[in-house]
Nucleic acid binder design. Structure first.
Lengths: 255, 255
DNA sequence: AGCAATTTGTTCTCGCGTTCACAAACTCCT
DNA sequence: AGGAGTTTGTGAACGCGAGAACAAATTGCT
């Protein structure tokens, strides 16, 4: 076991990870991390790729290939040292350092996010909660007070904030996004149902409840009939129809 | 314009859409729908693939290919009739009918979801809000009262509920999932940070804030140094280290 | 020491999704 | 009517990711 550890030279890692890890793999690393943590909590010291894969809900070949992008951290005939691998993945993702996060838009969703226990953990620290509504400024949410949106720039710059979470209505999302980017934020998690346009160097990830539901609805519909609803009678099917009204409302507000 | 409409026979659609639309395309249809709704609200009658693509934040070739899986709804030299295409996509996704949804776990996130205006729209109706905490049962959230988790089975069966949303802590997610599936729910949207195991015929989609943040952190780290943090000194890097503690907490609770 | 059993790391193949590029189809202007 | 200008729909090329399969490496047993 110790041999596997000390044999893994920094050199080997450089050669592998130097030129990036496939996106699909990056997206799965947090899942592996969670599975490893669960195993560690149960005092499991070693796990095979099969064990890990089933805990993470993926194919074992895929898991092995994913891990091979990080380095040679396993031991043939044995498996992976749970805590060691956990640390290596955490380091690769960047969880061995703290990340300052601001959340903009403290409505229902913003409250939920602010109270999310995963935030309160050491990896991601809430530098500020921001809202444009003056009557909300000063309100205490969890450990943090709500600040005014006007202070965004100062907070981001002095607090070295690199990640911003947008939980505003769709209408103000692009404006908030621009202000975040101007202040120096280069990674954005967007909960507003809008397409954000950002400069090249800024990463945006989107979480959209309505889209997820619609994808489920599509599959549900196919399960039921094996095909979509019948085509409407030719003519003017959409304008002013009930469906049109529903769709208008569907994308109206943020969460 | 009218020609394009009437020329599109039901037969042509059958041949195309009969055997399924690629997953990647399905995931983008809701985005197109939103873009079309925005255009419709601005009284735009016709849009080119270029217009639509930029509104949706995708490549125009991709958009055209995506739409071609649904049928031949455009007109060469002109573009797409906004309202007509909007209706066709809505029908394809299944938004021309109502979907009954139950939300389980009415904590911070559950509240946010229950108040989400996208839910209140005609496409997705909240059949019930369920929580296991007896002191919460009866509480009014939006238009709906919280019911006891014990009533899950009855509510799902009588209400013809096919979609379930899990917003509970990770620990109870699998149990709730099993009960949903047993009661007849065949599509699940999971906000709890756990891998759910379900029978073949059930669809699960996962929304995980913590994972999204970690993916952002990975890219952020690479932007900063071009490579991950240095490898720890060989030895015992992880057990009992601050990082270990942070990671434990990270996946502890749901939102 | 040698052999059977186990498990990783990697090669290879296949399919899906993205993008390019262009012919077909339609409009508008002369 | 005819030709120039647009814009769609799609065939073809390409790259990435998934999964099967296997050789290499390690352990434990005899």
């Amino acid at each position: 076991m110790t041999s596997a550890r000390s044999r893994t030279s920094g050199r080997a890692r450089d050669e592998r990870a130097e030129r990036g890890i496939p996106e699909a793999t990056v997206a799965r690393l947090p899942i592996y991390l969670r599975a490893l943590t669960a195993l560690s909590d149960r005092d499991v010291a070693t796990a095979s790729s099969e064990d890990l894969a089933s805990a993470a809900g993926v194919n074992s070949a895929k898991l092995r290939k994913d891990l091979s992008y990080l380095g040679t951290y396993g031991t043939r005939g044995v498996g992976y040292d749970v805590n060691y691998l956990r640390y290596q993945i955490a380091r690769e993702i960047g969880l061995t350092q703290d990340w300052a996060v601001v959340i903009v838009g403290i409505g229902n969703l913003g409250h939920a996010l602010a109270n999310y226990s995963g935030f309160a953990s050491r990896g991601f620290q809430i530098a500020a909660l921001l809202d444009s509504d003056p009557s909300r400024v000063g309100e205490q949410v969890g450990d943090v007070q709500i600040s005014s949106l006007d202070d965004l720039d100062a907070i981001v710059r002095t607090g070295n904030v690199s990640i911003g979470v947008i939980a505003t209505p769709a209408g103000s999302a692009q404006d908030v996004c621009d202000r975040l980017v101007n202040a120096g934020v280069s990674s954005i998690l967007n909960f507003a149902p809008t397409v954000l346009s950002v400069p090249e160097h800024v990463d945006v990830r989107k979480v959209d409840l309505s889209i997820e539901l619609q994808i489920l609805a599509y599959h549900e519909q196919r399960k039921a009939h094996g095909a979509p609803a019948p085509v409407a009678a030719p003519g003017e099917p959409s304008v002013g129809s009930p469906v049109g009204a529903a769709l208008d409302e569907l994308s109206a507000g943020a969460m």
